[in-house]
Computed example of a mutant assay.
Amino acid sequence: MVKEMLPAGNFEVLEARDGEQGLKLIRSENPNLIMLDFLLPKVSGWEVFQQLDKMSNTQGKMTPLVLMSGRKEEVTEKISEPFEFFEFIEKPFEKKSLIEAIKTSMAKAKKWKPKGGAAKAAPAGAAAVGGLKEIQAIEQKMAKMQAEIDALKKQNAQILNFIKQKLK
C-alpha cells in the first residue's frame, strides 16, 4: 500500500516481506531512504532499527528513515520522543502525510552525528576494520609529510647559514 502512495519519480522501490529480508536488502543495496514497519515477522522492526543504528555509527552516516506503526505507544516504549534522527508516522496515514514524513526524515538524517564522535569509535566488525585501515593509511601519510617538513626545515636552516656566511 505504501508503494502505491509514493509519487511518481525516477527511483526504484525495494520491498521486503520481513525484517530479515529487509536487513539483507539494506546491506546489499545501500538505499537512500528506508521505510520501516515496527511490527515485522522473523526480525522485528525494533531489531531492524537497532541494526540500522549500529550500521549508521559504523558507516558514519545516517540513511533517512521513516518508521511506521499503528501502535505509537509500542514504539515510544523502546525509543523515546522526540524522534531526533528519523520520522515516525502513525498508521493509517494519508499520502500527504507520507510525503511530509519522507521530507522530514531526509532533513533529520542530515543533522545526524555518529555516537562517540568519529566512525573509529564504532564497534568491531568488517566496516570498523575498513575504517581502521583508512586511519592507519592517513597516519602513514602524515608521518611521511612530517618527515618531508623536517627535511625542508633542515634545508632552510642550511641555506640560511650559507647566506649568513656569504654576508660576513
Rank of each mutant, 00 (worst) to 15 (best):
N10K: 14
N10V: 07
N10A: 09
F11H: 03
F11T: 03
V13H: 03
V13Y: 05
V13I: 10
V13D: 05
V13S: 06
L14K: 01
E15S: 12
E15L: 08
A16E: 04
A16I: 14
A16D: 04
D18Y: 08
G19V: 09
E20A: 15
Q21H: 12
Q21G: 13
Q21R: 08
G22Y: 13
L23V: 09
K24T: 14
K24H: 09
L25D: 11
L25Y: 13
I26Y: 09
I26M: 08
R27C: 06
R27F: 08
S28E: 14
S28V: 09
E29R: 12
E29S: 11
E29N: 09
E29K: 11
N30W: 02
N30D: 15
N32K: 05
L33Q: 01
L33C: 04
L33M: 06
M35G: 04
M35I: 12
D37V: 13
D37R: 11
F38Y: 15
L39M: 14
P41H: 10
K42L: 15
K42S: 15
S44K: 03
W46M: 09
W46E: 12
E47M: 14
V48S: 08
F49G: 04
F49I: 03
Q50G: 01
Q50M: 06
K54Q: 09
M55W: 08
M55I: 15
S56L: 07
S56I: 08
N57A: 06
T58P: 00
T58C: 11
Q59V: 09
G60W: 02
M62V: 07
M62F: 02
T63C: 06
P64K: 02
P64G: 09
L65G: 02
L65M: 07
L65Y: 05
V66I: 10
L67E: 03
L67M: 11
L67Q: 01
M68R: 00
M68S: 13
M68D: 11
S69V: 04
S69G: 07
R71M: 12
E74Q: 10
V75L: 05
V75W: 01
T76C: 11
T76V: 14
E77N: 13
K78E: 15
I79E: 09
I79Q: 06
I79A: 14
S80T: 08
S80Q: 01
P82E: 13
F83H: 03
E84C: 04
F86Y: 14
F86R: 00
E87D: 02
I89G: 01
I89R: 00
I89N: 00
I89T: 05
K91G: 13
F93A: 07
K95G: 07
K95H: 10
K95Q: 13
K96R: 03
S97Y: 08
L98Q: 04
I99Y: 06
I99Q: 07
I99W: 05
E100D: 09
I102C: 03
I102P: 00
K103A: 10
K103G: 00
K103W: 01
K103P: 00
K103H: 01
K103V: 08
T104K: 03
T104S: 09
S105R: 05
S105L: 06
A107N: 11
K108Q: 05
K108H: 07
K108L: 13
